[in-house]
Amino acid sequence: MASVLKKALKLLVGDDMPSEWLKLPKRKRPLQPLSERELLTLESEIGAQLFGPIPEGHRREFFCLDDKTWIWHEEWLDAKRKLQADTIRYEITDKGILKVQAGPHYDYLEGDELRNFGVAVRMYYEQIARQLYRRDPATHQKLV
């Protein structure tokens, strides 16, 4: 059982795992890996902060769903206290980055919008690597 725990921890934290992690008292439960959904939620919380403060009464998400899909979602209550929502899906294709909105509206990103999306993606990866995974985004080495 200990070897399974060691392998799981190595997958979670890499090769530089402190050995004292494995010396937990028996009454404590060992670390459990986060599910993919839990990681996505944590990444989304960090991604939401990239675009400045979230207005009161708003909920925002920005995250990478898979290799080719990014999601921007925002919810808020309007003046009549009715829930409003806006979701934009960005699909990475061979032709460019396709912006998909409700309606349906499909447009490829161009100009400033394309540059801003690129900056947001780089900031997202840097913040996720540093804050969530505790890794240097350039070298992938564990941060101290």
Rank of each mutant, 00 (worst) to 15 (best):
Y125H: 00
D67V: 13
T93I: 03
D112I: 10
G57Q: 08
A138P: 06
R37N: 06
L65I: 10
N116K: 14
D15N: 10
G52V: 15
P55S: 04
Q49C: 11
R81T: 08
V119F: 05
S35N: 02
F62E: 11
G52I: 14
R122N: 03
A120E: 06
D78I: 01
L34S: 06
S35T: 05
T69M: 03
V144H: 05
I88H: 15
M123T: 09
R81A: 10
G111N: 11
L22S: 01
T87D: 11
R27H: 00
K142I: 03
G111M: 09
Q49E: 12
R89V: 15
N116G: 12
A85F: 14
H73Y: 15
G52D: 13
E91K: 14
E45C: 06
W72C: 11
W70A: 08
Q141L: 04
E43N: 09
L143C: 00
R130L: 05
V144L: 02
E56G: 12
L83N: 06
P137S: 04
D136V: 10
A120M: 07
V121E: 03
A2L: 11
C64S: 06
R130N: 03
L11A: 13
Q127N: 10
Q127S: 09
V121A: 01
T93Q: 00
G47W: 03
Q127E: 11
R60T: 03
A138S: 10
M123C: 10
L11M: 14
E110K: 14
L12V: 14
L12Y: 12
M123R: 09
R60M: 01
S44I: 07
Y90N: 11
D66A: 07
R37K: 08
H73E: 14
L109D: 09
R130F: 05
H58W: 15
K95E: 03
E75C: 08
Q141C: 02
K7Q: 15
A48T: 06
I97M: 05
Y124G: 03
Q84R: 14
G52E: 13
D94N: 04
A2T: 10
K28I: 01
R27V: 02
Q101T: 02
P104C: 07
T41H: 12
K23P: 09
H73V: 14
F117P: 04
G14I: 08
D15E: 10
W72D: 12
Y124M: 01
L12Q: 14
S3K: 09
G111D: 11
A79R: 12
H140A: 12
Q131R: 04
K80N: 07
G57E: 10
Q101I: 06
L77G: 05
D67C: 13
D136R: 05
Q131D: 01
R29W: 01
L24I: 03
E56N: 13
D66T: 05
G47V: 02
W21R: 03
K68M: 13
Y106F: 15
K82A: 07
G111S: 09
P25M: 01
K7S: 15
Y106M: 14
Q49I: 08
V121Y: 00
G14Y: 05
P104D: 09
E126R: 06
V144R: 06
A129H: 11
F63P: 10
L24F: 00
E126Q: 07
G47T: 00
K28Q: 01
A102H: 07
A48C: 07
A138Q: 11
R27E: 02
W70S: 07
D16H: 06
I92T: 08
T41V: 13
R115H: 11
P137Y: 07
N116S: 13
E38I: 08
A8K: 14
L50P: 08
